[in-house]
Design a protein around this nucleic acid. Sequence first.
RNA 1: GGUCGGAUGGCCGAGUGGCUAGGCAGUGGUCUGCAAAACCAUCUACACCAGUUCGAAUCUGGUUCCGACCUCCA
Length: 494
Amino acid sequence: MKIGKLQLHNSLTRQKETFTPLEEGYIGMYVCGPTVYSDVHLGNCRTFVSFDIIYRYLKYLGYKVRYVRNITDVGHLLDDGEDRISKGARAEKLEPMEVVQKYTLGFHDMMRIFNTEPPSIEPRASGHILEQIQMVEDILKNGWGYESNGSVYFDTVKFSKEKDVYGKLSGRIVEELLVETRELKKQDDKRHPADFAIWMKADEEHLMRWNSPWGEGFPGWHLECSAMSTKYLGKTFDIHGGGNDLKFPHHENEVAQNYGACGCQPAKYWLHTNMLLMNGKKMSKSDGNTITPEGLFTGDSPHVTKGYSPMVVKFFMLQAHYRSTMDLTDDALQAAEKGYRRLMEAQKTLEGFSADGTAGQVDKEINELLDQAFEQMSDDFNCPMALARLFELVNKINGLRDGHLPMAELSAATLDRLKKDFHAFTHDIFGLKDDVADGEDGEKMDGLMQLIIQLRNNAREAKDWPTSDKIRDTLKELEIQLKDAKGVTTWTKA
RNA sequence: GGUCGGAUGGCCGAGUGGCUAGGCAGUGGUCUGCAAAACCAUCUACACCAGUUCGAAUCUGGUUCCGACCUCCA
């Protein structure tokens, strides 16, 4: 495969850089996964869809990628100091691990619905308590932490003063962090507000607790990612990803912990996805500006006029760059739905082509568009640009089908490439699938439709308009639309 | 208040110092038994004010507005 250099925007340097893996041909990528204390948020879905495409594209380029995405099932503190999982357990009268199981399964279902690939390893924080305790010990041994009343804190103050590392990723000014006077509950044992817990002493009523050299307790939230990335990807690995909102404090503290334990930066490249907004505002449960994935799919929400299929939602997400905020509106979804259908239709049309012409202008343009699509994808995973080239190809495909463009100028080799690359983009890289015709039911449905189309075309040939129109109108009532192109009739869900 | 990012045509959303992003919607046409679809053509832009430049939506400064983070957050 002939692909130009891969460029990516590194949050650590705030610049686009040429990607060079630590080990030729291999990539280690860690992405912060969900905290499984409630149903997946649509914003989570965007992040994981984005990284899924990055993962898929890296693999497409020929890299062997180890993609690690954790499940946070312990140690995530709320304002009042209570663990998120424990809180969920109390609220639902369940064992903490029941809560974890329930929402982990729900999360996996949603990832499947969005047709994302599972990561290579999906470690759980609760399964890596030993590694986390070890990391706390390493940090203590290196002098970057202190024990206080059964809890262990990272000494941010000392670390900031002695190493020029803290604040680099998130762009914080350390001096300002150090004068921060905000008081947090249950953290009275800290020497300084900027310090953060790497091991927390468990209260009497705390449900999730483990033995440690410092007594019964549980790991700090930031620690799990440090411990698990180190375990599965090594002290330094290629790519670390996550949502923009995790930059501070989570990622900043992660860097501090890794540095504190191992003396080096954990990741060479940091990738951050931007937020999904709705009607121009951040989605938030408290002010009602939110929609669940299910609500989007079924249309059962005041924010949408109808339901949109998961693939339409995914296609919608692909239209914006991963580093841009994206505004979800009903109008935008309607537009996405039509665009998505158009893309899938063209895919089907293309599959029916055969050619053995002599390469002419069309041939050249098709090759150029394909080259550009890959170049743009290699430029910091610019999906919207690559998608734009794909739509220009849709235009060519439809033109060839309708005879506006000469099929005789298309060589067999180029057609073969077009079929392969187009499919690679839509299915292998973007992870889209035709939600109308793919799958077992889809095939049955398509078989039935082909029969109906044939019967209608028989009627049309006999100029039996009442019959052919009745078929067309009845199907339309069933939300199935027939499209009569030259010689071929196709169908699609309206 | 601090830090960072943004402001693009009716909507969503790319991008670049001079050349059509793309999708959806609109308009005119072609095709069609009719229609839809498709195709061809086409109209709406770069928040505001200065400056740099032969030339800026793209660079610089200021203004206004918006968002994110600073506290759990993808």
